[in-house]
Design a protein around this nucleic acid. Structure first.
Lengths: 205, 205, 205, 205
DNA sequence: CATGAATGAGAGTTCATTCAT
DNA sequence: GATGAATGAACTCTCATTCAT
């Protein structure tokens, strides 16, 4: 019988609904305004109902967090087929930036927000985050191996590179770039990324 | 009569007192622990008294925010005397980083926190922030003029540079660097800054 | 047709199942942990199902209460064959004490708990409790008749005797004997019972 | 100035008010119904107000508990002047019984209720309870010394005696004496106490 | 017969804020 | 000018119970 499957699907749908509502509130009003009650209101259910689908508030945050890393990782994967490691590195960065700017609430939760969930903190959050970090590091090492980048401590270079893109997107997400007109922002980011890569990369003759 | 002036002075003193207490709590216990009651306790007045000097909690956060930028600006000033613009740029970055890591909660409020205060958002916050930004831009332009940096759109380069350091400190402040051991963090940041400057700067013969 | 009877039997079986589960929780985790949900989990049915066999939680408590008196009564029965009424009285008391200390939560529900159930209060609860009380009274009267106890108002003596044992076990159950080390408690109770009987009983020459 | 004193008095009055309301609810509806909200309603204040006078719910329970022991102890004191230890013992018991039956809610909280307060449990509750227990033990030892009671382990005798009176009053308080008409209860208790003392005491010629 | 889904009511607690004094 | 006293609104979470399926 398909009843069990249907139920499973319904359950997932409801969880999805809750997560979407939570994200909406996140985006619209900031973390502190994401309360069980408000989520409930948003989806027009009672607060108690939410506890049928999530153990507690932490569980919701954790689920969102995981979804975010899943999405990021899947976007990173799409870049892997590119052969040339330098081009790949650039696409890699662009994929990261698009993810951050398209799914701001997720990026916020994953990399900016003060960890609001015990579960996130306890679960070595990096079983899931490190995967993404390692992918970047590999890319950078390959660039070094291919002679595109000077060989230096890969940990330092990876961190530096990551910090650079993170810095850009997080300033935008948290609205600290009011000195630039909104519509130019993407260009500036693109320009900054270019600039950075151009100088880091070894000029081959 | 000097009574009005005295009153003015007294008022300022009290405001200062409140802000100092708020700052202390901010730095010591983090944003969430800054409550009106706690501030009141700290200065040994009643909560109600605080409302004689500040309209509401938002008002206090706004003032703190301004003080933060004051502090940052003053630290930037100390670097200005350095003649060589490239060395100055490095010191400039280091000053920024020290500020961020020494006064994390402040930095957080200024550059990371989702504006907890309507007033910050409304007031074009950058009358105060832009000053600091301009100082950095000037430094960079001077580096270009002196032939240390390739001449490119200074806006882009400044943003890029700023984003790089901001990225590093904000990842640290918001604890996203669990993959590095705590005690190595400062070295890695220093290394990354070095790395970045080394490659951006033109190698003079 | 026997269908009706079969249904009747099935119903009883299910009720029994619920009560057993409730009792288990009662004994293992105490009154507060007995929730409809937990009972349902225990018997691997849904909470809603329980309402097919019991009107409400009160109904369950009432039934448990009755079962408790059943158990006590059956333990009392086992003492009846003893011929000598004084020895029987002592065994009677010991049976009561064992019941109370072995099935503390039951005893609690029956004799200590502020009736958590309207039904217990409403139903003249003593149709079931009185049976046990009468058994004790009879035993005491027989002691008087046999010259073991001074003839006095049997109601008073019975109450006094009952109160004495009840006092001891209820102080223990509700943890008011912290001044005695746990492991000595049983000895002290035994001693107190002895002491009491020794003095109440007439010394025959 | 008397302002400080007045404030002190007002504060005490309010605490008293809260405690009285809590007791009223206790008596009327049982422990589970004593909630901060209900207390607030009872005294026509907001729930938050209560937290101005008591740290938390535990604090209220603890205060009540202490008051109860204070009262009991003070009643015990009044009996001390009686010279003859046996007469004193009887009066002692009567004082205990009166306290229990006149201030049932207090007695309940002190000796029957399942300790609902961490503070009570943690604070070795017996710094305050033991005082009363010791007074009884002394009385009993004096009876032994005076030849009124057989010399036996005073701990056992004291416990036995205490349990006896506790048993009687707790059966009454928790309404397990429905077999006796209300108005006879006091007589029966008196009778049982008499009976018990008469047999325990050594008949002097 | 059985239940998944849902909920209203209520628990303790905290906070920014107000206002009469 | 300062404050003690008070509160409304919110928070997370749990429970007994109902009802359409």
């Amino acid at each position: 019988m398909g009843t069990i499957e249907r139920r499973e699907r319904d359950k997932r749908k409801m969880q999805e609904l809750v997560l979407k509502a939570a994200m909406k509130l996140f985006l619209k009003e900031g973390f502190e305004k994401v309360t069980i009650r408000r989520i409930a209101e948003e989806i027009e259910y009672s607060p108690a109902t939410i506890y049928l689908y999530f153990k507690d508030k932490d569980d919701i945050l954790y689920a969102l967090h995981e979804k975010g890393f899943e999405e990021l990782y899947s976007r990173q994967q799409k870049v892997l087929p590119i052969k040339d490691p330098l081009i790949r590195l650039k696409k890699h960065a662009q994929a990261y930036i698009s993810f951050a700017l398209e799914m701001r609430e997720y990026y916020d939760l994953m990399f900016i927000m003060r960890a609001p969930s015990k579960k996130i903190k306890e679960s070595d959050e990096w079983s899931v985050g490190k995967r993404s970090y390692e992918l970047l590091k590999e890319n950078i090492v390959q660039c070094m191996d291919a002679g595109y980048l000077v060989k230096e401590d890969p940990e330092v270079v990876t961190f530096s590179f990551w910090a650079h893109v993170h810095g850009m997107v997080s300033l935008i997400i948290r609205e600290r770039c009011v000195m630039f007109p909104e519509e130019q922002l993407e260009n500036i980011v693109e320009g900054a990324l270019d600039y950075s890569l151009r100088h880091i990369a070894i000029k081959k003759k």
